[in-house]
């Protein structure tokens, strides 16, 4: 049974993620990493796909990690983790070595696009690992290119808002549905503005034998052209506008963790981010309406899955 907390005070003090890293001011990734390293009990090994987290925390000869950590390539974080897990399983069997929990951190590029094949394989083979995607909704580390996780209407350097298109024309992939389709026992969404919810979900994932997938909302002031001080405010608004529903799937049961009864207008969320500024112009209203429909459809789908509609 996983340890579950009720207040921030109960969160362990130990920091296994050191300052001095070169992630941008106002970045939303460290809140996830610090929490995950607190919520997963006992020995652990971390694998990181190529991405912001990897490049900014391991600039040679420095590392911010106080746990065993490995980076391999952009596309194979899940495959590397699967190999580590299999090796430790063999060591456990042969020499009785206590097996560490394997945690993978991949960005949306390394998860939705480039690493999806390796992730699919690891989930299908049933390795005992926690895969956490930190989703800042574009390839931020390489210059804000659109990814499969970029939401409809967001401007990136490869989906710039202008006369031809008002930001990315396509909708965002549904990572949790992809994970569930593989038969994982546990999958959930996370948000830094909800620390206790995040801790408890990671602890729950750690208590489950087999692959689990967590999807984390990562504010990115650089790529979203937002005020670094507003990162958590934006994250909270993502939940309160139903843009980022907080829910979990456990052995066939869906639960919405923050049931937003009267959502805030989506514009409250959009107007804090430069990447969406064009959506508030009258000529792009149709795209804004499309985005609103996406959000509404997703929320209604989740209500049905959770038996609330």
């Amino acid at each position: 049974m996983a340890v579950q907390i009720k207040t921030l005070r109960e969160m362990p003090r130990e920091e296994l993620f050191a300052p001095g890293h070169r992630l941008c001011a106002g970045c939303g990734i460290p809140q996830l990493v610090r929490t995950a390293l607190k919520a997963v009990p006992g020995p652990k090994v971390v694998v990181t796909a190529t991405g912001c987290l990897e490049v900014a925390t391991t600039i040679f000869p420095y590392t911010s990690w106080r746990v065993p950590w490995v980076h391999n390539a952009f596309e194979n974080a899940a495959a590397t983790a699967a190999g580590i897990e299999a090796a430790f399983k063999a060591l456990e069997k042969k020499r009785g070595v206590k097996r560490p929990k394997v945690i993978v951190f991949g960005g949306d590029g390394g998860t939705f696009d480039i690493g999806l094949q390796a992730l699919s394989g690891a989930l299908e083979r049933g390795h005992d690992l926690i895969y956490i995607c930190y989703d800042n909704e574009a390839y931020m580390n390489t210059g804000i290119q659109r990814s499969g996780a970029t939401p409809r209407g967001a401007a990136t350097t490869t989906s710039p808002a202008g006369k031809v298109i008002p930001g990315k024309p396509e909708r965002k992939k549904d990572l949790i549905a992809i994970a569930i389709a593989h038969g994982v026992r546990y999958a959930a969404t996370l948000n830094p503005a909800y620390p206790v919810d995040m801790f408890n979900k990671i602890a729950k994932a750690a208590s489950i034998e087999g692959p689990t997938v967590l999807h984390y909302f990562t504010p990115c002031p650089t790529g979203w052209r937002s005020d670094p001080a507003k990162s958590i405010e934006i994250a909270r608004l993502a939940v309160l506008t139903r843009v980022w529903p907080l829910y979990e799937y456990e052995d066939g049961v869906y639960r919405i963790n923050v049931l937003v009864k009267s959502p805030r207008p989506i514009e409250d969320y959009l107007k804090l981010q430069g990447r969406f500024a064009h959506l508030l112009q009258p000529e792009n209203r149709w795209m804004l309406e499309q985005l609103k429909r996406d959000v509404e459809e997703n929320w209604n789908r989740l209500l049905k899955l959770a038996g609330l509609a």
Partner: peptide, 9 residues
Amino acid sequence: AGNSVLYKT
């Protein structure tokens, strides 16, 4: 481990 503390940001 964690020697990025030597790099003051």
